[in-house]
Structure formats: structure tokens, C-alpha cells
Write a protein that binds this DNA or RNA. Sequence first.
DNA 1: GTGTAAATGATATTAATTCTCAGTTAGGGT
DNA 2: ACCCTAACTGAGAATTAATATCATTTACAC
Lengths: 150, 150
Amino acid sequence: MRLTANKIAGILRQHGYRLTPQRHAVLKAIASSQDCVNPAEICTRVRQEYPTIGMATIYRSIKMLADLSLVCRVNPDSRSRNYLMRRSMSHHHHLVCSQCGRTIDFTHCDLSQLEKRLTRETGFIIEGHILEIYGRCPECCAASPVPNPR
Amino acid sequence: MRLTANKIAGILRQHGYRLTPQRHAVLKAIASSQDCVNPAEICTRVRQEYPTIGMATIYRSIKMLADLSLVCRVNPDSRSRNYLMRRSMSHHHHLVCSQCGRTIDFTHCDLSQLEKRLTRETGFIIEGHILEIYGRCPECCAASPVPNPR
DNA sequence: GTGTAAATGATATTAATTCTCAGTTAGGGT
DNA sequence: ACCCTAACTGAGAATTAATATCATTTACAC
Ligand SMILES: [Zn+2]
Ligand SMILES: [Zn+2]
Ligand SMILES: [Zn+2]
Ligand SMILES: [Zn+2]
């Protein structure tokens, strides 16, 4: 199922959060960008329609969205944190280039066999998983086939 | 093949880095820990054998190890960055209880099919992955069968 | 041993994120 | 429509991770 901005607004309400115009703007700013964005970029976008918003509100909105698992952290190699709106309710995993940080989403992970085995062996009821695969993207491989330092 | 501290020291030399006692200590501190560690934890460990080392040197050593791809960033959800020494030995993953935190290790993840597919579809050369599965352990399931949110 | 470029450690600086608090507001109840 | 109140906001201060600077020290090639 796909997550639209309206659907997300409904989820906020369901969880007792107020739907303020600031939050709605932050939400739209993240949801409308295909790539992952950092707080400063979100701020730039939001201030075009809401010029007086403060950074604290942006950070608080991001935290709220993260608490609701509507947004996820990606690309750990930048100085500031990067976020990406979840596009669907299904799994959402990242393939990250360890050199340039380029990130590709994928949803088919097929860990069900592994999870079944773990349930059988340990008695755990599996709720979910965190999976991130890293490697080197085609561009970075082409640029320097043998990753040499300095 | 397993990467030992000695082997890594050789790699440093090959790349023209000097092998200072400080670097050796940082290297040992990361390599000897099973889980990922952040710079502050590395500092604590290193100062037990090298009390005068400064944080700048720790950060510089980490950067050098990262440039050589001997260490990789993991666990993007912490405030400080976390690092894990690369081991070519087998994978090391966790099954974590989301309620009580009990953790079980497992090593057979079998993501090779998935990684092959991603390489075919994206051209990425896969270097590794982060995988953590979470759920509720048998004890916690017995204690309260229905988990309630918030 | 000597020379020298690289490395160290103390300190200052930068920049991201969080905290504080007085004023504002969304949204339920009347 | 109006009130109430807890939730929210924005400005600025505080905290914290990470990097830069620079005088001193040191690994290591010769
Ligand atoms: Zn998945
Ligand atoms: Zn790349
Ligand atoms: Zn694995
Ligand atoms: Zn448990």
C-alpha cells in the first residue's frame, strides 16, 4: 500500500499528534523529494512556503515522523543526518555506496526463510528487521577500480 | 582469511603510513571488540594502555582505517558514529528482543541470492551488509501476549 | 646517528542537534 | 462560536561531535 501525504496526516491524528501547518509543510517537503534530504535542505524547502519556521520545529517534526516509522535515516557517511520518506508500508531497505553515498531502495528482501528458522530455533516471534547492504556503485567502481587510499 | 591486528599493521606500512604506538593501540581496540564501537568508547579502551592519547589522534586513526576500508560505519541511529573492524571471517548478526533487549547471535544469513540480484540490477559491487532482526523473546511473549504501543 | 616529512596532543573552531522557556495555537468540550 | 488547556512553536542558549591549527615530537629512510 502506498503512503500519500493525506494518509500520513491521518496517521498523525490517529496517534494524537496535532496537525499544524508547520508539520504539514515538513511532511510535504520530505515526501515530495525523491532522494534523501537532510534537515538543512528540508528547512530551505519549507521556508519557501513557510518563511518563519524555526530549525527546532523542523527537528521536532523529523523526530515525530521517525517515531512513527514514516521516515527513515539513510546515508550515514554525511556529517548531517539524511532522511527519506517511506513510500509504502512494505519493507524498505537501502543499498548504499560506501564511497559516494548514493542510495538505492529495494523492497524484496526475502528473509522469511531465515526468520522462520530463527523462530523455530529460538522461540522468538519475529516483528521485523533492519537490513542495509553496502558496496560500491558503478560510477565509483569506474572512477577507481581498485579502491586505493589517498 | 581472518584480518588480525598484525596483518593490518602490515597493510598500513604498505600504504606508506607510519606505525605509531597510538595507531596500533586504536587498531587493537577496534579489532578486539566484537560489536561496533564509537570514538568515545575507543578512547576509553585505548587510554587503558595509552593514557595520554588525544581525541584528535583517535579520530585521525579512524579516518585512516576507513580510507583503507579496514573499518566500516555501522548503526546509523546513534548520535556519534559507530565503527566495526572488518573481519573476513563469518558474519555476525543479532536477534534482539524489542521488549527486554535479550540478544542472540546468529551467523548464517544467506543473503547471497539477494546480493547477486542487486548486483545484476544495479551494477553495485557488494561489500557487505548490516542485518539485525528484532522480535519478542519467548519469556516476553509469555509475560504479555499482546504488545501494546506507546 | 641525522634529517625530514609525518604524526601527535593541546587547544580553538565549526557545525549539528538538543534544550529552555515565554508566548501561541489546535482541537475537544461547552 | 467561545473557552480551556495541553501541545506546539520560535528565538536563542547550551551541548556535543568532529575538524582545524600549530608548536613539538617522532618514525623511519638514508
Ligand atoms: Zn525486509
Ligand atoms: Zn558511489
Ligand atoms: Zn550476513
Ligand atoms: Zn524479551
